[in-house]
Design a protein around this nucleic acid. Structure first.
Lengths: 197, 197
DNA sequence: GTCTATACGAGGATAGAC
DNA sequence: GTCTATCCTCGTATAGAC
């Protein structure tokens, strides 16, 4: 039932893992097949077997990332914790990558947006839309539970919060302890939203 | 006193103008000497006469940008308008570039931070520091004038606001009308700060 | 699936003529 | 100051053997 091979990650997955780490650190334009090649331990040409072009690779990357974050958000929602605690958990998703100098994949691709192939742009837009939807629903629950007030709407507040989280990542990264810097930036703003941070 | 030559921008300035536009759109890794060459109308090699290396060029770029923004902030401060109106003017500095798909130079370089040559990283850190200082002073004036309350400090609020403005730029750019999208993201948050937006 | 070999252009940068 | 010519490396991508 459990053989050795199935315990090792498939090559395509390894490629995406490495690519994701590089894009989250350096952005779209600054990573290359050669970089992946070295770290995965196969030749550049072999990567093209799995992902014919860079556009193709990054498109799959964002798709997989959307699914990963969808699951992470589901886990938070299913915890049935109060909305303010769930909001904090959501913020921590953005915080934790900073331990390895990694911003959210789509924060980086948002900066690179104008140079992205159109299919990738489309995925990035969908990512933002997906996050806004989920967060707006959470904020609405907080409204219903009298935890806070949404102004002018849960949807608008969601966009503002995501903007803040993304911006905080970029601002925190140059700091020596970016993890702590991130918290110092966002906790006051979350507290304003009646979150016990 | 006024001859024709002095009315035309010096080549070095033209190079910086074009480079700035490109970095603000595409980021550090995605622009090249070839791009500048085409748009300024000189050969690649000639650019190296003015700026020996890319690191050198971008370092000067950020220095000039810091001076430009220093002057823009001075103008706002000297208007003697109420602090809430000055805050709105400050936010509009971030908004206006979006008309040409341009984010703040250091929002982009913040995303590219880990791949920047160290001297450029230093300039970027100084830029953020400079903006935080100025904004913190403005927020403090608003406190003194009872326009709002700073929590936990003007300095921390300043960082949060800059994070929000930067994030809002990245989030707004994929939208069809990024200018309007930016306003929709930040106005609710500024209103929370008692700004009549 | 992965390799070697290779194409072909783009990248930053330098030397030397004008 | 700007040019031409050139260098060398890196970038994405393909062909074909194993």
């Amino acid at each position: 039932m459990v053989d050795i091979d199935s315990m090792e990650k498939k090559t395509a997955e390894q490629i995406l893992d490495v690519a994701q780490e590089m894009v989250r650190r350096q952005g779209y334009s600054a990573f290359s097949y050669a970089d992946i090649s070295k770290r995965v331990g196969i030749r550049k040409a072999s990567i093209h077997y799995h992902f014919p072009s860079k556009a193709d690779l990054v498109k799959h990357l964002v798709q997989r990332y959307r699914e990963m974050l969808g699951r992470a958000c589901d886990r938070i929602a299913r915890s049935n914790a109060p909305a303010n605690e769930q909001l904090l958990e959501f913020a921590h998703l953005y915080r934790d990558g900073l331990k390895q100098d990694q911003a959210c994949l789509c924060t980086m691709l948002g900066a690179d947006y104008v140079v992205l192939p159109e299919p990738v742009q489309e995925e990035v837009r969908q990512f933002f839309h997906q996050m806004e939807q989920w967060l707006a629903a959470l904020l609405q629950r907080g409204c219903d539970d009298q935890l806070w007030h949404c102004n002018p709407s849960a949807k608008q507040e969601a966009k503002g919060l995501i903007a803040m989280l993304q911006g905080a990542q970029l601002l925190a990264r140059p700091e020596a302890d970016s993890f702590a810097a991130f918290e110092q930036i966002i906790y006051p703003l979350l507290r304003a939203k009646a979150v016990g941070a």
